[in-house]
Amino acid sequence: MTDLTTTTGAAVRPAARADPPARRISKHALLIVFGVVMIYPLLWMVSSSVKPTEVIFRDPSIWPREFDLGNYTGGWTALEHPFQHYLWNSAVIAIASIVGNLLSCSLAAYAFARLEFRGRRILFAAMLATMMLPIHVLIVPQYVLFSQLDWINTSLPLIVPKFLATDAFFIFLMVQFIRSLPRELDEAARMDGCGHVRIYWRIIMPLSVPALATSALFTFIWTWNDFFSQLIFLTNPDLYTVPVALRSFMDGQGETAWGQLFAMSVVGLAPIFGFFLAGQRYLTQGLATTGLK
């Protein structure tokens, strides 16, 4: 009997309370141990960032015995520019990408979700196909194009495509969301003589805030983490973003300055962690809805 209730509890959440205590405790123990293993490397990195480099190679514990911010002050100025320079370069690209993605993807999404037009099916299929396309397939000709435009070593190759909705994933995400909004709202607005531009801007966009937030968060995280295209398009050290700067730090002097390298790596992760804490709900919901449709 008890066995049956625990297994049926799979989908009925309140029934889980009927788990026998021993079972509940062992499950939590398992989940906690596993969680600690998962998160231990991160905690250890943060803790090591305040340890002297020699200690990093001896001390596997996550409690630093001494607390020294020297790695942060030293690492901050260890490269050609102070670290805020790289943070700024990354931030400019990330913010421009967010604005670009939100505008261009929502425009396309509105058309796919709300308008009837010739060629819709085929264009929608094309959009889904480009979603699967690896950047590596496009990077060589894109590089040729950008070098002919003289855009190499500017942030334009990283920003302009975002204003032209090249991240089709977000179009898809927004289409799914807009389709779930009641059509009565737009139809009422049509009755009142609203055109599509106004419906898009005044009705659909404000209602789509959750989808826009999800898109903004993912854009930020992906752009902030992006290394491949930044490595290729930005070879001038003045333009280095955080990932490229960290990599040059490691290849340059990092092997002898792990403490500083860790400290700056933590600085590089901090914005993502912050956005994760602030917008976790949107991240997990966005992920779940794309998976279910």
Binding site: S104, A111, R120, A126, A165, I171, G195
Partner: peptide, 13 residues
Amino acid sequence: VAYGFLTPWIVGM
């Protein structure tokens, strides 16, 4: 109207 909305995406694609 739809192609107006789709223009940035089509150009980008």
